[in-house]
Design a protein around this nucleic acid. Structure first.
Lengths: 259, 259
DNA sequence: CCCTACATTCCATGATGCGGAAACTCCAGT
DNA sequence: ACTGGAGTTTCCGCATCATGGAATGTAGGG
């Protein structure tokens, strides 16, 4: 280590335990590599010595957070599923009451999502009492450019950062109304910043309309959304719903900072 | 690695990177503590020096895997949700085709679950084409004593280990048919080991019948299940379904060892 | 207001993780 | 079958890095 190797640009502030930062870096690298990778692939991607990676990865396998396939490649292990679920439930604990209030007032499904990397992850949900309702799984990761929560999360970011996320993920069309132009999206985000909420007009699933608002917090921010079928979510309904969603976003922000 | 010292629940087994083992131990401790804990509580539970814990925990906070609340207590962070979801999806990738075959043959929802700690976690699912179908979220953790997959997982364990799990979790009644006696459960597990599959007779949700079989693998084992409403899952149907589920369990076991 | 409990920072110590290089394993080519 | 090579795993000496006791800072409770 003769040169200043602590200045790794992609893994910014590693002022803590290096082996830990490296191990989690490996987990993320594995994720980026499609959830499965060999040792040398990890070495190439991270620039670490194979021996070092092997020791870290071996430890993770022993602990059950990684699995080694018979092909000697590595995959994320079952214990991570449990941890992730507990983490999601943790968020849900303080968010669910607020979401439940929203559902009680509005009658449509309410969701809470956080930004993880370049995707939005649903961390809490309260379903609508209607027969026909949205079907969103907690823990599900969705693109940011075509979802209410995704756009709300982007609107809370500095425009440059939001643009960077979009540049990385691209804007694949999921439905006919999906926004596929970065400039159009940027303009919509500007509007969203102005009025405090954002609409999703069937951009991920046809016939589903969604109102979303950011939850401003200290660390990574979050977003609330309410979504339902077009038949119930007409313009009048949206006008009534939007302020409620924005208010819920504020309440959640306060909770997140206080609780 | 064939020595039987893996039965040490509190201290994970050294041999790897200690700071890593300790950090993940802290994450697990945090989970056991209800998802939220202060520094000294973690110190009490783990027996580590506060300074050591603080440094590890600080690193995890910086990395986004832990959140520090304004009360200075710690919670699981948002990044764990994403990792967990990716891990679950990873399992799903190779399991889904097999589950889809099951659904095609049987017409009922098929699930795959793994044992995580003392709970069963659903890691993959293919829903039935029927209107009325099971509603299981991926990543959901359910008790072992009252679910098909749970009992199948237990049946794959050595009887003593299965008994230990049940002793820790207890047998709370969820429905009128839930098994609440450890001996009755032990006897049913013995039968299951014999014939290769296990039934869930509305033990977690009334009116739902479920056929489950273990997936024997090298590391932690898994379990497949098929579940549907009593109206469609009569005795004749079960007799037809059971061998298919057992066969799927074998196929998945082979895949898990080969893929 | 002081006092106690808890969280955080400091710092000398040596245990612990590091990585270059060698041994090994699994395949693919001939 | 034999050989070559890419990828994986083990070895081991060095110094870096994590460690934890003690000191300092920071809320809440009496």
């Amino acid at each position: 280590m003769t040169d200043g190797t602590t200045s790794r640009p992609d893994v910014p502030r590693a002022g803590g335990v290096q082996s830990l930062a490296r191990a989690f870096g490996l987990l993320e690298t594995l994720t980026e590599a499609g959830g499965e990778a060999g040792l040398s692939e990890l070495a190439d991607r991270t620039g670490l010595a194979p021996a070092t990676i092997h020791r870290l990865v071996r430890t993770l396998v022993d602990l059950g957070y990684l699995r080694q396939l018979p092909s000697r490649r590595y995959t994320l292990g079952p214990k991570l599923v449990g941890l992730g679920e507990t983490a999601a439930r943790q968020f849900g604990r303080w968010a669910t009451p607020v979401l439940a209030d929203l559902v009680a007032e509005i009658g449509e499904t309410a969701n809470l999502a956080v930004l993880d990397g370049d995707r939005a992850v649903y961390v809490a949900q309260v379903p609508s009492p209607h027969q026909m309702r949205m079907f969103t799984e907690i823990g599900r990761r969705v693109p940011v450019h075509c979802t209410g929560v995704g756009k709300a999360l982007l609107s809370a970011l500095p425009p440059a950062d939001a643009a960077a996320v979009v540049a990385r993920t691209g804007l694949p069309a999921v439905t006919p109304t999906t926004i596929t132009d970065a400039d159009v999206l940027a303009r919509e985000l500007a509007v969203a910043r102005e009025r405090g909420y954002v609409l999703d007009e069937g951009e991920q699933e046809t016939g589903v309309r969604c109102v979303a608002a950011p939850v401003t917090g200290p660390h990574g921010s979050a977003a609330v959304s309410v979504s339902g079928p077009l038949s119930r979510m007409d313009d009048t309904a949206v006008a009534r719903i939007a302020p409620l969603v924005v208010a819920a976003g504020r309440r959640l922000g306060t909770l997140l900072a206080t609780a």
